[in-house]
Design a protein around this nucleic acid. Structure first.
Lengths: 237, 237
DNA sequence: CTATAATCGGAACGAACAACCCGGTTAGGA
DNA sequence: TCCTAACCGGGTTGTTCGTTCCGATTATAG
């Protein structure tokens, strides 16, 4: 009890392990072999296990710090002047951050990777709930979603950004996900009309027109159809 | 070449393996051990490997059939009378189906699990593109998304439905995802207002009121704030 | 400097799983 | 019925990875 708590080298190694684990988990997720972490920390696997009972415990030790920080930010935004900015800004930022940290991504994902035990799940959900309700009361978020929906959408947005990352348009899927939450007004229409490479009517791929002006239809009949439609339904066309 | 193509028991076993693999992959995804599939089929692991060079080949053989069916349905919907119904109906149905088939879910997910080789990815994307463009031309889908966005949203919806499944409201996240694609008009507002357990203004948790009527605010000041807001912004409130 | 106990590191273990192999079995034609 | 090539199945191998163990090392008090 009164004994010197730890030897100096032991303390140093613990820090090194945490640092290496943070980097490794962030880069590759919880599946990274523990031996890799040990090697990056410059210690043996045994030393890791003297500090953390299981690999899972190490993962949680690393991630809990990050989640706590995120929860703190959410709480700080709870009193922000503009509830809409606070909510959408927070959501966007969380996803953005998770993009660069696979571990946070996994922790916030669907199952919270068993974080229920540490209470992080409840805290995160509660903090998010405050932002959500304020935004809803301000009319910035549709009223028929609850905090679990937003949690799911967050996880989904991270998943989409990671899985379907195309070099261009980072954050595009998140923007789309946010639009799903908005009331029917005020959209985030990002880009202009897509560049057309298919017939606008039947979606047949268009051969690159030799003429300067890009073609919009594959045939005269489709062009006529388009004209007819434009006249018939000016509301939806 | 002219030799009897296969022994009867071999043919029978092949069918059994395909059936067992379909069930196992559908229930548990591609991670299910191959030995389990062999056992369910009532054969040894060796017999599986005599029919399919790798576990991955077996997975693809099983899943390709399902994806082909989905692609066929998409193509059939390409000429539907109502492009909006065709598109949203197809998306909803694909997610719904994947809910009960983990294998399809994984195959349609972000990376298509290497299905590029079999051409399924291109075919699925092309068929989906037709539905999307027709729906866009009909004004039922916002014009600033492309087929890759929809692919991502599909994968995300499946992910969300699977991960955050709450007993109630199956398909709710899919409905939300579809709303992200709609033009600003015409929403799918599913349920009424959520049951309030927090202050509508500051989101403080409300202690269950002893009185019969449920409270909506945590304090008199919040109640006043609500009144003021309702007068100030009748458009958004 | 010395003694000693905490600490270190990596070898060793066990479990899981894909893939291979070979001795025994059987279908099906003659 | 008999023969044989095709086929069967599970035991075996190789690999990966989490976890444990123990002889070697080293920090630190006296």
């Amino acid at each position: 009890m009164g004994s010197p708590p730890q030897r100096a080298d032991a303390r140093r190694n613990r820090e090194r392990i945490l640092q290496a684990a943070f980097e490794a988990f962030a880069a590759e997720g919880h599946l990274v072999p523990l031996d890799d972490i040990a090697r990056r920390a410059g210690v043996g696997a045994g030393t890791v296990y003297r500090n953390f009972p299981t690999k899972e415990a190490l993962f949680q030790a690393v991630v809990t710090v990050r989640i706590e920080r995120i929860v703190d930010e959410a709480r700080a935004l709870g009193g922000a002047a503009d509830p809409a900015d606070a909510f959408y800004g927070f959501v966007t930022q969380v996803v953005e951050r998770a993009m660069f940290n696979h571990a946070v991504c996994e922790a916030l994902a669907a199952d919270m990777r068993g974080f229920d035990a540490s209470g992080m799940d409840e805290q995160f959900t509660a903090a998010l709930d405050v932002l959500l309700r304020r935004a809803q009361n301000a009319g910035a978020v549709r009223p028929d979603v609850d905090v679990q929906d937003v949690r799911a959408l967050l996880a989904g947005a991270m998943y989409m950004e990671r899985g379907h990352r195309r070099g261009d348009r980072p954050g595009h899927m998140t923007s789309l996900a946010c639009d799903a939450l908005r009331p029917t007004t005020k959209r985030n229409e990002t880009s202009g009309p897509r560049d057309e490479t298919h017939c606008e009517i039947c979606a047949t791929p268009l051969t690159p027109a030799a003429t300067g002006r890009p073609a919009r239809f594959c045939s005269a009949s489709c062009r006529q159809k388009a004209h007819r439609r434009k006249k018939a339904s000016p509301k939806t066309g």
